[in-house]
Amino acid sequence: MKKLVRSRGAMLAVGLVSVGAIGVATRTMPPQAHASAERYSVAVPLPAQTRPAPAALVQAINALGGGFQGHVGIAVRSIDDGWVVGHAMDRRMPQQSVSKLWVAMTTMSAIDEGRLALTTPVAITRSDLTLFHQPIAYLMKDGVFNTTVGDLLRRALTMSDNTANDKLLNLVGGPVAVRDFIASRGLGNIRFGPGERLLQARTAGLSWKQEYSQGNAFAQARSRLDPNVRRAAYQAYVADPPDGAGAGAIADALARLHHGMLLSQQSTAWLLDTMAHTRTGRARIRAALPPGWSVAHKTGTGQDLAGRTAGFNDIGIITAPDGKAYAIAVMIGDTARPVPERQQLIQTVVSSIVAVHG
């Protein structure tokens, strides 16, 4: 079998991105915001690798990635020792709701800069509704749900609520603001798409209409499409996803977050604690953790078509009882394998880390 695992420690190319070049400096910001923007205008390298990756883990990841029937990217980074192993780490896979993490980080950055606060009031109306999973829609009374930025963050991260996420996206300045955040932190091979409505509509072969946010309207409109139209749209999405990201870049970003290189100490702690309460994906990373281990993570799952799924993912930071941590990203970009097999792949990656930890 061709060896697909390679160390990224020596290959971590860090671009120097000027704040002015991405337009951040043109925004009106309080004095403390300028200090924050200056701090992150140059991406700081991750700590150097201090020991080699465990050979048993290299072999396990090679076997798992190479043996799975479908497109899969895997990356595991030791946050303490700096080594990285993986399979197809640089291939962009559909993120789906994994991309909610970048919206959350952009929001927390706005909080660090004083432009928002966790307590900032927000009103959700019917015009804010998106599609698919949006439990916040059932909380509306007389067409309005009054909440806060902090509550929306919690719902977007732990419940993967699409409406909560897209409302935050609008508050911080839309997709351009999130792309600016990704670029200014030097996160590399991570794309951010056009938002939930447009992304899902294009994946299905539809043009978005706000009426699709009500009930089962989106699914009904999708079912009426010419199968060839839908198949072509699906194939175009998985071939070059506008929200695509490499598993290696995601693992690097998680390590940077853990090291406090992306947000303030307070925002970092709040974000990781919130991710530790994620309710989705109970049969993915979390299912393989022994007692005493913990995880802060975000899942992502795309649309199905004829047994295929455009994105079946889990990414996060797992921490051993002794405090050592690992950033992990398992991105299944397109596969027709049954869901239990996908879940088992993610669980086996985690089990392989646990096995070599001691």
Rank of each mutant, 00 (worst) to 15 (best):
A355W: 05
G193Y: 05
G23T: 03
E341S: 14
H277F: 05
Q266M: 10
S7E: 14
G150P: 14
G292N: 07
M331G: 11
S97Q: 07
T203G: 10
L4F: 09
H357R: 06
A247M: 01
D180A: 07
I332Y: 03
S223H: 07
W83Q: 11
R27W: 09
R279P: 05
V72W: 08
A104K: 01
T130H: 04
V356D: 12
V229A: 02
P31M: 08
V178Q: 06
F192W: 01
M29F: 10
R77L: 08
A60I: 06
I136A: 05
M108P: 00
I318R: 03
T163L: 10
I124Q: 01
F192A: 02
L187E: 09
Q343N: 14
G67D: 08
V354W: 03
T148E: 01
R179S: 07
A104R: 12
S352Y: 04
K141S: 15
T28N: 10
L118I: 10
G9E: 06
V5H: 01
L46E: 12
S352E: 03
G246Y: 05
P227W: 13
R224D: 01
P227I: 09
R202Y: 05
V17E: 07
H34Y: 05
K167D: 01
Q235D: 15
L257T: 11
D240F: 09
P45M: 08
S18A: 14
Q134G: 06
P194Q: 02
A35F: 10
L271Y: 14
K100A: 02
N146G: 02
S127M: 04
G311A: 00
L101I: 09
D166A: 09
G150S: 10
A233D: 09
A310R: 04
S267L: 02
F218Q: 01
V17T: 15
A183P: 03
G150E: 08
A276D: 05
R8G: 00
A25G: 13
V76L: 10
Q59G: 15
L271A: 09
P321V: 00
M105C: 14
T107N: 11
